[in-house]
Simulated assay, not measured.
Amino acid sequence: MKHFPRTYTCLAVLLATHQAVAAGFQINAQSATGLGRAFAGDGIIADNASVMAKNSAAMSLIETPELSFGGVAVLSSVDVSAALYTPIVGDTVDASVDDIAEDAFIPNAYYVHPIEGTDFTLGASVYSNFGTNIVFPEDYVAREFGGETSLTSVNFGIALSYQVTNKFSLGGGIDVIYGDGDIKRKGLLDVEADGVGYGFNLGLAYEFDRDNRIGLSYRYSPDIEAKGEVSMGGESADSINIPLPDMLELSGYHKLTEKFAFHYSVQYVAWSEFNALTSEELSSSIKEYQWVDAGHISIGGTYYLSPQVELRAGYMYDKAPTDSLSSLSIPDSNRQWLSAGASYHLSDKQSVDLGVSYVLGEDEVVEESLTIIPGTQSSIKALTTADAWLIGAQYSYRF
C-alpha cells in the first residue's frame, strides 16, 4: 500500500472524522434518502444515484444520467457513568465522564450515467463506510483507557452495471479507500498514520415485475496499511494495520398498492476480521478487539402521497460485534434506529430529500485491565450510554 498524498487529507477529514453511529465503527450515512427509511431496501429501490453505495447492479434501474449529492449531520452523545478506576498504585476512584463523542457533518456525492445504445451503466461516488472519533478530556484520570481513538475512511468508487435481461442485472466496482488512524494514550501510545487500500464490490438485481424486486451485494474491504509515526511502550514503528470488514447485504422492495410500498434489508458484516490493530514492527498488538461477525435488519415503508411528494419511515436493529472483550476506546452496544423522511419533486428533473433518524444504543458495561509494569495492573469498570440524532438532506438532478 502506498502513502496517500497529503493534498487529499483535508477532504478525507471533512468526509470521515466523526463518531460512528452504527454498530462497531460502521457508518450508515450514505444518503438522506436512505436515512429516512433506516436504509431499508436501500440496495434495490434506486430512487436516486446513491443506490450505487449499496448495490452497483441496481444502477441499471436508473434510466437517465443522474447526479445526487448531500450530507448528514450527526449529533451524537456517548457518556461514561458509574465508572470505577483502580490505578496501579492508589485507591479506586470515580472515572465518569460525559460527551466523549464529537458532532460532525458527513457529505456524499454520486453520479450515474447509462451509456447510450448499450446495456451498461457507469457510476462514480465519494462517501464513507467506516469511522469513529472518541476523545476523552486531556486530564482524564484513567488516561491509559481514555485518550483519543480516531479511525476514519473515505471510499472513492467507480462501478459498472450490465443489464443481462429486462429483469436481471449484474454490477461490480473498484473502491479506493483512504484510511487514517490517530490513537493517543498519554505517555503510553501515540499513533498518527494514513494510507490507501483497494477493495471491490459485486452486486445483482432482479425485477419480478415493475413493483417487486430484490438485490444482493457483496463488498470486499481491505486491510489498510497506514504509514506514519507509531510509538508504544518505548518501541517505534512507521506503519499500522487497520483491518476493515467485508459486507454482504440483501434488499427487497415490494409496492403493495398504488400508494404504498414495503421494503427491507438484511446486512451481514464480517467484524471478526477486525481482531486487532497491529504493526509488524512492534512486539505486541497495539490494541486487541476480537470482535465477532454481526450486522443489521431494517424494515421500512414508502407512501406515495402525490406525484410530487413521497413519505417514508423505517426501523433498524443493529447488532454490536463486541464479544468477550470490551473497550472504552470504541464503546459499542446494540442499537435501534427510528427513521422518517420525505422527497419533494421540484420537477421531472429535480428532487430534494430530507431524512432524520434517532439512534438509541443499549447501556453497556465495559471492563478493561492493562498491565503496564510486569506484576502490576490497572483496571476500569464503567457503564457506557450512546445515542444520536442524524439529520440529512439530498439533492438529485436528472439530465
Rank of each mutant, 00 (worst) to 15 (best):
K2L: 14
H3L: 14
F4K: 11
C10M: 14
Q26P: 04
A38W: 08
K54L: 12
M59S: 06
V93A: 12
E102D: 14
G117E: 05
S125I: 03
Y127I: 01
G131Q: 01
V141F: 00
A142H: 01
E144K: 06
E144H: 05
E148W: 00
A159V: 10
I174A: 13
V176Q: 05
I183H: 00
I183C: 00
R185L: 12
K186P: 03
D190C: 01
G195P: 05
N201L: 02
L202P: 01
G203W: 06
E207L: 13
E207G: 08
F208A: 07
D211M: 09
S217F: 01
P222M: 01
S231Y: 09
E235V: 06
A237Q: 01
K255W: 04
A270I: 04
S272A: 03
F274D: 00
S284A: 11
S285C: 00
S285Y: 08
H296C: 08
Y304L: 14
L305N: 10
S306P: 09
Y315G: 12
M316K: 15
P321V: 06
Q350G: 12
V359Q: 08
L360I: 14
E362Q: 14
D363V: 02
V365H: 12
P374Y: 10
Q377T: 15
A382G: 08
T385N: 14
T385R: 14
A388T: 09
W389S: 10
L390M: 13
L390G: 08
Q394W: 05
Y397D: 06
